[in-house]
């Protein structure tokens, strides 16, 4: 009989029972719906062993890789330790080792950690300052020998956390970091596939990581990055991107500005419009969209209608935290 551990509790799975049935029988609250693997409401994550592949049907490849599964389809083959998607594992401590302005609106923060930590470039973590204020930011670097994490933080008007990072954070400041989350990252395996990456503002952060990851893993297909902002203050890493494009034949970079009075060295228009109309079809492409939630909703549908498979579209929407009045 297989045993299911969730949080502090361990339960036995009865013969023929799914993980969902076991947990519900034991009065554990697990969101669920159709119980036949369609609505994906009962998504959970295995923290130790790989879940049975039959319980991962229909999930995005990046989520499968992170051992997500559907509890209603999962007849465990071995003991499992599981967690709900919103259940956070232990966080780790990190300290600021570098802080640098990338543009008037965006600061680069580099943190160093000591404890073991695994992530994919493009995933996000919750950064928590000592008094508990917490915000999510995307990781802009690939895992390296050095234990560092890079973030690009845009200053928001009245943004409590971003203003604090801008005005107060100094070297050696301590922050705690949640587990890495999110399904918007690169996976090797289809090296010749063309990639289309569209980001607005600090949406470049995850894309920068994803591009570095793809290049480090010898992605051979063309990689097209369209980075957009309303005005020049929202664009950054322009020289770095141009340098990268000069170094790698298959990497193409297009900075875009959608506001008025645009310098002719930038393409004029919204990055998503320009990106998605730059190619006749997106059939067979892998598409990454990061940044403004509205842009993502629109662009996701457009990319799909232009031929990208729904499973090949990866998104990371930057929702602005609304302070309750």
């Amino acid at each position: 009989m297989q045993r299911i551990t969730i949080g502090e509790s361990t339960f036995s799975c009865q013969p023929n029972e799914t993980v969902l049935e076991t947990l519900l029988r034991e009065n554990i609250k697990v969101p669920h719906g159709c119980r036949q693997g369609l609505c994906q409401a009962c998504q959970m994550r295995s923290l130790d062993n790989s879940p049975p592949t039959s319980s991962q049907v229909g999930l995005k490849d990046t989520l499968q890789k992170q051992h997500y599964f559907l509890a209603c389809l999962c007849h465990p083959e071995q003991d499992m330790t599981v967690a709900l998607p919103n259940q956070q594992g232990a966080s780790i401590e990190a300290r600021v080792v570098s802080k640098q302005l990338l543009s008037p609106d965006i600061v680069q923060l580099i943190l160093e950690y000591q404890s073991p930590f695994s992530f994919f470039a493009g995933q996000f973590v919750n950064l928590k300052r000592p008094d508990g204020l917490t915000r999510s930011y995307s990781i802009a670097n690939i895992p390296l020998a050095k234990n560092i994490l890079e973030f690009h933080i845009r200053r928001l008007p009245n943004g409590q956390f971003s203003s604090w990072v801008y005005d107060e954070v100094a070297l050696d400041a301590q922050l705690s970091i949640s587990e890495a989350q999110g399904a918007c990252h690169y996976l090797p395996g289809r090296a010749e596939q063309p990639l289309m990456l569209v980001g607005t503002g600090s949406g470049l952060a995850p894309l920068y990581g994803i591009i570095a990851d793809a290049l480090a893993q010898d992605h051979s297909g063309p990689i097209h990055l369209f980075h957009g902002s309303r005005d020049i203050n929202g664009l950054y890493f322009i020289d770095e991107m141009r340098k990268l494009a000069a170094e790698f034949d298959n990497f193409h970079y297009t900075p875009c500005l959608s506001g008025e009075d645009i310098d002719s060295e930038y393409l004029r228009g919204r990055a998503d419009d320009l990106a998605l109309s730059s190619t006749e079809t997106l059939s067979g492409w892998r598409v990454f969209l990061c940044g403004h939630p509205e842009m993502i909703n629109q662009a996701k549908k457009t990319a799909f209608m232009k031929g990208a498979s729904i499973n090949d579209i990866y998104t990371d929407a930057f929702h602005v935290f609304q302070v309750e009045k």
């Binding site: 609505c39 229909g58 549908k301 799909f304 209608m305 729904i310 579209i313």
Partner: peptide
């Protein structure tokens, strides 16, 4: 994908297909 694209581009019925979560919608089509 082919079927879902047809449905989404059909003005007669696309209002019935909430596309706020395209993955979930595609799972149902499947």
């Amino acid at each position: 994908d082919i079927f879902y694209r047809k449905v989404l581009s059909d003005y007669r019925i696309n209002r019935f297909f909430d596309n706020s979560d395209m993955e979930q919608q595609a799972a149902k089509q499947k």
